[in-house]
Write a protein that binds this DNA or RNA. Sequence first.
DNA 1: ATAGCGATTATGTATATACATATTGAAACG
DNA 2: CGTTTCAATATGTATATACATAATCGCTAT
Lengths: 248, 248
Amino acid sequence: MSLVETDDVESSESVSLHQRILSDIREKILSGGWAPGHRIPFEHELTAHYNCSRMTVNKALSQLAKAGLIERRRRSGSFVRQPQSQAAVLELHDIRIEVEALGLPYRYERLKRLKRRSSAEDRSLLGLSAPGPALALESLHFAGERPFALEQRLINLSAVAEAGEEEFLDIAPGPWLIGRVPWSEAEHRIRAMAADENIADALDIEAGAPCLVVERRTWSAEHPVTHVRFIYPAESHTLVARFTPSQG
Amino acid sequence: MSLVETDDVESSESVSLHQRILSDIREKILSGGWAPGHRIPFEHELTAHYNCSRMTVNKALSQLAKAGLIERRRRSGSFVRQPQSQAAVLELHDIRIEVEALGLPYRYERLKRLKRRSSAEDRSLLGLSAPGPALALESLHFAGERPFALEQRLINLSAVAEAGEEEFLDIAPGPWLIGRVPWSEAEHRIRAMAADENIADALDIEAGAPCLVVERRTWSAEHPVTHVRFIYPAESHTLVARFTPSQG
DNA sequence: ATAGCGATTATGTATATACATATTGAAACG
DNA sequence: CGTTTCAATATGTATATACATAATCGCTAT
């Protein structure tokens, strides 16, 4: 059971000792044999168990630490960490570019524009605590003749006053905001949803048809800037994110 | 410009040499100074440049290779692999963690397991050109009594032979693969879909109900490792990605 | 009791060395 | 001319050793 109880370590054929130590410990952790918080054997114990040098053990443990599986504390030992979520890089999409990449003509159409004092729902979406002026926009993005995405957007006019003077008839709010307001933080929510009647009508699909919904909230230096909801008919859109792992 | 032209390496204060070599080379690559395909100085050259032992250089280069930034070839040297286009950081949640975060008991159940020679569709999903052994898995993740997600997975056994010996009855393929196969690149496709009969049956929802589909392809050092498709009932799942812009 | 201090201990980083392994390039050979 | 063989070379892995650093334990003095 325990790695340090027995001494009968048979020599493995082709894999390196380093790899063997790694996978042994990983196995123990991932199988649940060593729960989060468990102290794994000290380097000198593993050294004795595997009959190898401390450097070899150290390298394996350092790698596990870098991978986030364990946490190492001087004088205390190494401990199994709570499982961590991995980070990956998501490509931010510009609808115009996406449509044109499909070889289709892009067209933008503003449906509604309403300046108002933020409602409770507006504040919830924007992440605001106090009421203030807001701009609500609804627009359609077309690929050729067909609606490609419905955009429902709120802009916090306290943060971006000049947006209140813009009609957004010829330019979509996304490109308008980009560059004008440097974002410091953003949050995406991605989900599937059945189209209600309004959405179905705007997108020219049937009510109840599946849609992909991408919501984004953006902050600039702690101030909420905008909340936007893109609604895509399921068949028109796939979000693609290609990435490489983050490194320590 | 070149790391090996000058010898004037000033002593750094607090960071370790290991870290300095790492960030120096990363800098060169990410800034574009060293384009993809460029041969990085040999270990013995870096050893001379940094006035340190080969082990230190080797550790840094091994780490860069594991991170996928460079590729190492015996007798030939180390080469820059791919440029990175970063946009935003997406947190990839482990389904178990997500379910438990909801305060619900998590349960995993393997439905099907089939070892086979990869079909044309398999190869297309995995991104393989030549046929080879593959493992097809279908599993259900439960939150309490209700199905939370359906997982359809393909594993390229040419890349991860040991997976062929695993039954995956007690451990889900995701956790099993994590750490065992360090991924160097991945691709997500996220879309909405109406549940067909099989899916509706497995997830205990109505046919035609909207689902969120997350597909992920993973590579390890250019080799396709796995393709997985998670299908979530729309009401059970929202993908959340929170991030700050990359510093360039 | 307790606050401070030093010894102990586990990890962090680096060294020099050794041999294995894969691959390249050139020499030797049929 | 093509093929085989072999030495050179860069990386891969492991060793023993050394000292630094941080945290804990236990002792001591107040």
